[in-house]
Design a protein around this nucleic acid. Structure first.
Lengths: 224, 224
DNA sequence: TTTATTAAGATTGAATACAAAATACACGCA
DNA sequence: TGCGTGTATTTTGTATTCAATCTTAATAAA
């Protein structure tokens, strides 16, 4: 009886959070395209809720950088210019460097095992055609590193930066010719942690990130 | 006539933004203390608005890390633990380093002049007892650097990190014995930009930041 | 006295209602 | 045809209302 209640409590989420997650996912997957208007009434009827939770969810998306709203004109999915992308990458580069420094110091043995498993999962995924799965296992690999850094604030900020590129990054991963390189880089990262070689790790992370730049840049240029 | 209309347009702000700014200021100034409950009805009557804009402002504060809400229980001003502070400082350290690297490359002559003026303003402020002014001119000095980095995304993230420490930092600046050191560090920063000496700048920024740690830590310990 | 119990009040969550502004569109005019 | 102008419609901003949950406090039982 009580456990039933607890269960209800556990999976209870305010509608605003449900809406937020739904819209967030839709934006990241590209179902809602950059520049697309987020009309409250439209979303409300589509999701079967009132405007109230929609509005609150939009405020949240706004602060995440996924939506932009102009007073009295409404919200739209955030667009990124090439400059925006460059700026975000610059920041991520610095934060990635910090993350590997921290992770190098603080990674537990269990986490190192986890990292190697995440590596395998990614490698397996690249043998399929499931782009979604490839992206997810790649993200998961990096998640292990960020978690090992043991700095939740850092993790939050990196995630927010990742999120902003996510939409564009999809295109990069769709191209199978990059898999070999990605795998090699992941292997190098593991090797780096094995040797606890901070400088080596920093440089790998840097190339790993900058490889994405050009690909993403092309996608952004295509965005009218 | 038309200019009057434009003016009205310009200073129009949705209530949610007015409320957001008001609450944000109140939190940063310490008028709303960490852990204090943010009750919608209470704030609404106090500010003379309905609960709707209050709720939206709270969602915004939440994403800024200034408020925390537990579903069905309401929001409260975010508390920071020592660990939280350490985490934020670690991140800010990395971002400050990035900022000076960028600023070193990109700072215009006009901005360098601005920086020297901000320095003077800060120095003058330290000769008064106006703690508020001292904090503001100090912030302004750093704002010039962050602006010179010419990376708005970086600026946003740094500002959000600064904001989270701001409340606690006040106490540090209240102590006049640190002024001399602060001035010396600011002078060193200017000297660093003059020489475009990135490594020197990084190290100054690092000590500049870490000097704050212990002071802030004391304040946090006092927070029950 | 302390601990359950439970009812009243307070508070949040969500929907609805109303006001103000922006947008779209049809009409008239040059 | 092209361009304003004004009206109708849509959309956002804010307030109000109703429902669900949480908190508090008073009461009763051990």
């Amino acid at each position: 009886m009580t456990e039933n209640l607890t269960l209800q409590m556990d999976d209870y989420l305010p509608l605003r959070d449900v809406v937020f997650n739904t819209l967030r996912e839709a934006i990241l997957k590209g179902e809602l395209k950059p520049g697309e208007r987020l009309m409250e009434m439209h979303l409300a009827t589509k999701l079967g809720v009132s405007r109230t939770p929609i509005r609150e969810a939009i405020r949240m998306l706004e602060q995440e950088g996924l939506a932009v709203t102009i007073p009295r004109k409404g919200a739209q999915v955030a667009k990124m210019t090439e400059k925006d992308l460059q700026d975000v990458l610059e920041v991520r580069d610095a934060l990635d460097a910090l993350a590997v420094v921290c992770a190098c110091e603080r990674m537990t043995d269990a986490q190192f095992v986890e990292l190697k498993e995440a590596m395998k999962a990614f490698e397996n995924a690249t043998h399929t055609d499931d782009v979604r799965k490839i992206v997810e296992t790649d993200e998961a690999f990096h998640d292990v590193i960020y978690a090992a850094a043991a700095n939740p604030k850092l993790e939050n900020i990196i995630n927010s930066a990742r999120e902003q590129m996510y939409r564009y990054r999809y295109e990069y991963v769709k191209n199978p010719s990059v898999y070999a390189q990605l795998i090699a880089e992941h292997r190098a990262i593991i090797e780096g942690f094995n040797r606890r070689d901070v400088e080596y790790l920093k440089s790998i992370m840097h190339t790993h990130l900058s490889n994405q730049i050009n690909a993403v840049r092309v996608v952004i240029r295509e965005q009218v």
